[in-house]
Each structure stands twice: as C-alpha cells, then as structure tokens.
Measured scan of single mutants.
Amino acid sequence: MQIFVKTLTGKTITLEVEPSDTIENVKAKIQDKEGIPPDQQRLIFAGKQLEDGRTLSDYNIQKDSTLHLVLR
C-alpha cells in the first residue's frame, strides 16, 4: 500500500509499505529515499509519536495515510 510522509519543509515522500511493516522498517525506507538516518527520525501520526517496534497496523495506519516526519 502507499503512504505519504510529510517533512517539515513541506516536502511529501511517497512510500510503498505493508500494514505489517514496523515503524523501524518505514524509517529505513525513508533513509533509502532521503538519506536521513533512522535515529534522527521521529514519525508522528494522529498526534502520536510512533514507536520503532510497533507496526503500521498497530496504529491503524491505512493506505494513503500521511505521517509527519520530525528530525531530532
């Protein structure tokens, strides 16, 4: 499925993911596309910070959802 990741600069990254993918996995995909190390990434969805060990389906993230990427 496709999800979107919006950065603070207003750029939107499109990712191909599975509901069973972990947040860690998603961060690795963002690193592949953007070169941002996962340890600098914070992903936010519906006002919640997403934890590495959980999956997209744990957070009820569905296709065409938009996550927000904050760098630390």
Rank of each mutant, 00 (worst) to 15 (best):
S20V: 09
N25M: 12
G53P: 15
L50K: 00
K27A: 02
I61H: 00
G35Y: 09
V17I: 05
Q40V: 14
I36G: 05
Q31L: 09
Q2F: 09
L43M: 09
K29P: 00
K27E: 01
P37S: 13
K6P: 01
S57T: 07
Y59V: 05
L8M: 15
I3Q: 00
I23G: 10
I23D: 01
T9K: 10
D58R: 06
K48Q: 11
I61F: 14
T14W: 04
G47D: 12
A28L: 09
T12S: 05
G10W: 13
L43Q: 00
S65Q: 14
V26Q: 00
I30S: 01
P37Y: 03
R72M: 12
T7A: 03
K27M: 04
V17T: 04
L8R: 03
D39P: 14
P38G: 06
I61G: 00
D21N: 04
K27I: 08
Q41G: 11
K11W: 10
E34S: 07
E18G: 05
F45Y: 14
T14P: 14
T66F: 11
V70Y: 05
Q49E: 05
T22P: 10
G35W: 13
K6W: 11
D39I: 15
Y59Q: 04
H68I: 03
E51S: 09
T55E: 03
D58M: 15
E51A: 11
S65G: 05
Q31T: 08
A28Y: 14
L67Q: 01
S65P: 01
R42A: 09
T55Y: 06
Q41F: 12
T66G: 04
E34A: 11
N25E: 15
L8I: 14
Q40K: 13
G10A: 04
I44K: 13
L69K: 00
V70D: 12
E18W: 07
L67M: 09
A28F: 14
V26T: 15
P38T: 08
K29T: 03
G35N: 09
D64Y: 11
K33A: 11
S20D: 14
D58P: 01
I30V: 08
T22D: 15
I36L: 06
L56K: 00
Q31F: 09
T55L: 14
K48Y: 12
L69V: 03
R72Q: 06
T9E: 11
K63G: 13
Q41H: 14
L67P: 01
I44A: 03
L56I: 05
K6L: 08
I23Q: 14
T7Q: 10
A46E: 12
R42D: 06
K27W: 04
D32I: 07
I44D: 08
G10R: 12
Q2I: 14
K29E: 12
I36D: 06
L15S: 01
F4S: 15
Q31H: 12
D52H: 03
L67T: 02
E34D: 08
Q49T: 12
T66M: 10
G35E: 11
T9W: 03
V70R: 15
G53M: 05
T22A: 13
T66K: 06
T7L: 15
V70M: 12
N25R: 13
S20H: 09
P37T: 06
G10H: 13
G10F: 06
Q40M: 11
